[in-house]
Design a protein around this nucleic acid. Structure first.
Lengths: 240, 240
DNA sequence: CCGTCGATGCGAACACTGTACGAATGGCGG
DNA sequence: CCGCCATTCGTACAGTGTTCGCATCGACGG
């Protein structure tokens, strides 16, 4: 028992708290997790790799976070916190709602892994940031005079989530290919056209889309079109 | 080298093809995978367990399926095949579109794992069944006179996917708890009310929802409300 | 009837994963 | 100075997806 398995503890080995490397904390863990998720996608995040980036042992994380799923919930709510709270007092409810929707989309595209998590956990977990966001959205629709503001929220969010999820998944696929979005489309086009050869409407839509040079612009206008549709439909629910 | 690690091969050990257990095939694998996914959720599906249910060795599956991800893509398109193709010739485009939307939702709720996969892979993978579905939807909107049928499809699908994803994720959470949906809600209510104590609109919405006894009915009417909103918005795009 | 060949099945192994457990350590209150 | 408690972390376990190479089998050509 005399011989320790560790090297002789010396003054030099004793690590002193580095002020720039703030001690392990829930906030630091979540922050670094988000950074890894953004950089390398959802599959690249493992507790071991995350711990390594924090200069910590793998199992040390569990002192601050119960489980990996819980860490994900925290990460999700954290990025929801990036969204600006909808302006509830605005006289122009349409503009305010559109802004909130676009902010949601932008956040989802900035963190494409978010869609994966939403697909599994949904909005069931109510973090404070999402809670605040929904509340303000409710205030917005109530102030606008909607008889069923909750329904309006749900409808708008469903559209935004559906659109952003599809878009984020697409961007993830593109990113995995290592190519530009335009390159990826160009490479995929022949296969897509062949697959849709028997389908008049689909192949027509594909060739039409291919004519527009900038894929980003296509996606933007897709989103705007749908958003206007939803807002128009909602406007019909306003009294008088 | 003389002693084989296998037991002495005898006539009795030699397996004869059982006609009711049709040989390993891609179709059989996909079918069984869907059964497992439906029964126990997405986390319960592993190649080994799947193989065991097929009375096969784990790695035998890879003769018929390149990768687990590919298996998932096949499973997704397979369940898309359960949907009825939208009636393209119908004079009432609204009814036909609504029917397609509800069919999509029903399918997503019958296979709640679908949302998880969509969140990761999106609609990037174009299986023949989803292709056919989209094509018919395109025909429907074209016949109805929409100037931009592709946009209409995308908008409708975004809403349906968003709504179904959220709903499926919720149902998965409920299922994991082992309780009825009503029981689960009842147990969650105090926490939800406390969490939303500071938020007038949210807690109001919660208490209002709690008054309605049947949670299924709430979800149905949520979906219908949003669907009507989207269809109303689309109708405005029809010429004249 | 035998020999060969391609397709199929599968056992073992590899590199990882999330996480439970218990031992070590360090700083702090008494 | 002692004892305690929060924190850290090495080890271990039960899995995971997937690769490799070998065994086996049915069909077919000679």
């Amino acid at each position: 028992m005399a011989a320790r398995t560790n090297p002789i503890p010396s003054v030099w080995a004793r690590r002193q708290p580095e002020p720039d490397q703030p001690a392990l904390s829930r906030a630091a863990i979540v922050r670094e997790a988000i950074a890894m998720l953004d950089a390398d996608g959802i599959d690249a995040l493992s507790m071991r790799k995350l711990a390594a980036r924090l200069n910590a042992g793998a199992t040390s994380l569990y002192r601050h976070v119960a489980t990996k799923d819980e860490l994900m919930e925290l990460a999700v709510d954290e990025v929801f916190g990036e969204m600006a709270l909808p302006a509830a007092g605005s006289p122009d409810w349409r503009a305010a709602a559109a802004e909130a929707a676009e902010d949601f989309r932008a956040t989802a595209l900035r963190h494409p892994w978010l869609s994966s998590v939403l697909g599994q956990a949904g909005l069931a977990y109510l973090g404070p940031n999402l809670l605040a966001f929904s509340e303000r959205l409710g205030a917005l629709f109530t102030a606008a005079g909607f008889p069923e503001p909750a329904r309006a929220i749900e409808t708008l969010l469903a559209f935004v989530i559906g659109m952003s999820t599809t878009e984020a998944a697409w961007l993830t696929t593109v990113a995995r290919s290592g190519e530009t979005e335009a390159e990826f489309i160009a490479r995929l086009m022949p296969a897509a056209l062949e697959a849709t050869a028997d389908y008049a409407h689909l192949s027509g839509a594909y060739t039409a889309a291919a004519a527009i040079p900038d894929p980003v612009e296509i996606r933007n206008s897709k989103f705007c079109y749908g958003l206007e549709v939803v807002l128009d439909g909602l406007a019909l629910r306003l009294p008088r």
